[in-house]
């Protein structure tokens, strides 16, 4: 399965395509698409550049990133693993 992720135009934060093609903040709320639906859904996100900057597909198993970029996508989903931003959450 695949999720669609992007950065939000206004503040650059990580967002996902959720139910009804809306933008959601949490990976757990992201809609999953099978291979047949994923490209069309990506196209719909790309058609909304006022919200989704650089949308792309993320391979997942369940709601967990599973492809080659799984670590990067996990860090995108949960934030830096270290540092001052942990205190600021």
């Amino acid at each position: 399965m695949k999720l669609i992720t992007a950065n939000r135009l206004s503040d650059g934060r990580v967002i996902y395509v959720g139910a009804d093609d809306g933008a959601v903040d949490a990976m757990l709320q992201a809609a999953s698409f099978d291979e047949d639906q994923a490209d069309a859904a990506l196209g719909r996100a790309a058609a909304r550049p006022d919200v989704f900057v650089n949308p792309y597909l993320v391979e997942v198993r369940g709601q967990t990133p599973s492809g080659r970029d799984r670590l990067k996508e996990t860090i995108r989903a949960t934030g830096p693993t270290v540092g001052h931003s942990l205190d600021a959450r």
Partner: peptide
């Protein structure tokens, strides 16, 4: 974004993993 990217880069603005 393609039009904007070179303009923001001329002003030190990147888009990184979590934010600008």
């Amino acid at each position: 974004e393609d039009q904007f990217k070179p303009l923001r880069l001329m002003n030190g603005v990147y888009l990184q993993l979590h934010a600008y």
